[in-house]
Design a protein around this nucleic acid. Sequence first.
DNA 1: AGATTATTTATTGTCGACAATATAGCTCAT
DNA 2: ATGAGCTATATTGTCGACAATAAATAATCT
Lengths: 214, 214
Amino acid sequence: MAIPITHADRTFVALRNAIVEGEILAGSKLNEAELAHRYEVSRAVIREAINRLSTCNLIERRPNVGARVVTLSYDGLIHLYAVREALEGMAARLAAKHMPETDIDEVYALLASHAAEVKGEQTYYQEAGDVDFHYRIIKGSHSPQLTTMLLEGIYHLVRMYRVQLGMAGPRVSNAWDEHKHIIMAIKNRDGELAEMLMRRHIQYSRLHIEELLH
Amino acid sequence: MAIPITHADRTFVALRNAIVEGEILAGSKLNEAELAHRYEVSRAVIREAINRLSTCNLIERRPNVGARVVTLSYDGLIHLYAVREALEGMAARLAAKHMPETDIDEVYALLASHAAEVKGEQTYYQEAGDVDFHYRIIKGSHSPQLTTMLLEGIYHLVRMYRVQLGMAGPRVSNAWDEHKHIIMAIKNRDGELAEMLMRRHIQYSRLHIEELLH
DNA sequence: AGATTATTTATTGTCGACAATATAGCTCAT
DNA sequence: ATGAGCTATATTGTCGACAATAAATAATCT
């Protein structure tokens, strides 16, 4: 039985994408009536979608005033990466404890399949490869809390920064090596090392971004 | 101008307390119509309150089926403390960077004022003192994300475990010493040490609980 | 009888209307 | 002009009714 999808679900996802992609500008106000008309649903549906968006930290709500899309700032990005570092570091530690051998091997295979690209051009880090790696480690933690916080609470905001500040940067082969070392630590069931490597990996990523925004 | 409070706000807080205190049983289903009648508001208000509860991880929602209060489990508690360790560790690290001197001194004074009680009876850790300490460190991180995640997303669940599994335990004077060392590290602006000490502190707390639940 | 399919019932999802509140614009006194 | 207070307008908060879906029950077939 497929999970049923309500109008609120669809509208939530549509709104989220519009915000992340910058179609709805950062800092702009969300008018419920206008959105209801635009997405062809009732205000109740829009309100539910907006409520969920605030869970993702993509908007801020004030009673009787309304919701605004968050504004992006250098400071916000730094704090965001601090949270990411803490949570994903812990995810790596837990993955070393809980991730089944077969899943670990799959990640290995995944990295291997990207080896060629890395040596050749600079296509790895850009999109799917990186996201997929982190996604699997997070899932490997077997912690529902961590998973929802990261995948529903942090990653969309990270993506929003990536898209709107145009940071797709190189950092290709380095990232690939770092991924390799992390999964090795997990395979060795060395949670402490896995956490440390993941935190370093995210710190490098943050430093790289700080450079770009100089 | 005081922040306006809507019916949804009040109902949300009331429901949250009822769940944390166990008045509404863990694992039980939330019937919107019944709750609307009980709290004397419309279903729309209840629905909004329920949406916010799911942000706190106090309930789980399934489309077209409804919301259930989470069930408490040993495993869930362990994972919860892992998240807490990661986030509060990072909060301590950031507090060492961002917390103003005056705020640090206030925490010092706070701890000093509890010194007498600690030496005498076993009243410190029990309630307010502990919560207040952690609250101030978290605020000191100056990270809105961390603050909302911990104070609105984790702490109520922690309290729910405390109340319903009846874990108020001793751990008094030890905790007090640990707090002292943490704030000293923060005063010395040693973020790395502050994080490590905070993580240890929470680990001890977790171990203490594991013992209680044997 | 046991399982399978209708049918009924209970509950959630969605809607449009109205109430409460905040914002913008105007009036007027200084 | 400028600011304070008032009025008008726009927007959010709340409500009750209806639609869509899932759970519970009854009816049917093998």
